[in-house]
């Protein structure tokens, strides 16, 4: 109590403490609302990540299987050479969106799956296994980019949640109890002063009556 309240206990101070307490309580309510919304957003994102990760891993498994098959049929060197010849560009649009003031990335990716003619390697010298491997890997790339967006979002939300939780706890367990303590102290002190005054007046009255 003493740490929160050091100046003299008077009505002016009581009004100031009441005002500070009202602000702290309002801030606490709003930050708690924000925390609830952040928790919900985080859980939503985590659920999506779970599904997205499972799909991406499954797609990568298919991709690596196809690459292995391709290497077995065409040979490792030829497969690597064909991969070198392939165009390695994909169009990704990275922008931002706001979740309660937190900037998170939004990634929009165009269709990554290309047809065999636009990939860049020679169709005469390669096997159809290469086409399958390329197609499966292109599908995997799209899923991985989408997963990356979700993971960055989850990480950013988790950091903000931690920060907000610290603020809410500081208000709930430190500032608000201290201010309430200070307010009670001032009120008790003012009551005490009133009682002292009352007793003093009674005593003075008794002395004056005794003199008469």
């Amino acid at each position: 109590m003493a740490a929160a309240f050091t100046s003299s206990p008077n009505r002016m101070e009581l009004m100031k403490v009441r005002k500070r307490l009202a602000l702290a309580e309002k801030g606490h309510d709003l930050l708690k609302d924000k925390m609830d919304a952040l928790v919900m957003e985080l859980f939503n994102t985590l659920k999506t990540i779970q599904k997205s990760r499972a799909t991406a891993i499954e797609q990568l498994r298919k991709g690596y299987e196809a690459v292995s098959a391709c290497m077995a049929v065409m040979g490792t060197f030829e497969t690597m050479q064909a991969a070198e010849e392939t165009k390695k560009e994909i169009q990704i649009e990275i922008s931002e969106r706001n979740i309660m003031g937190i900037e998170v990335p939004t990634v929009e990716i165009e269709e990554t799956e290309r047809n065999a003619l636009t990939r860049g390697y020679s169709l005469h010298t390669t096997s159809s296994h290469l086409d399958t491997a390329a197609r499966e890997m292109e599908r995997a790339v799209k899923l991985l980019v989408e997963l990356a967006e979700l993971e960055v979002t989850a990480l950013t939300l988790a950091r903000e949640l931690e920060r907000t939780k610290r603020r809410v706890n500081a208000l709930e367990y430190i500032l608000i109890p201290r201010l309430q303590g200070a307010m009670n102290f001032i009120m008790m002190r003012l009551d005490e002063m009133e009682r002292e005054n009352f007793t003093r007046l009674k005593r003075i009255k008794a002395i004056l009556e005794g003199r008469e």
Binding site: K26, G27, K34, G101, L171, L175
Partner: peptide, 16 residues
């Protein structure tokens, strides 16, 4: 701490 609260309250709707 009060400044922090005021800052946080001011920031809550800044993204609108």
């Amino acid at each position: 701490m009060e400044q922090v609260i005021k800052f946080e309250l001011g920031r809550l709707n800044a993204h609108l």
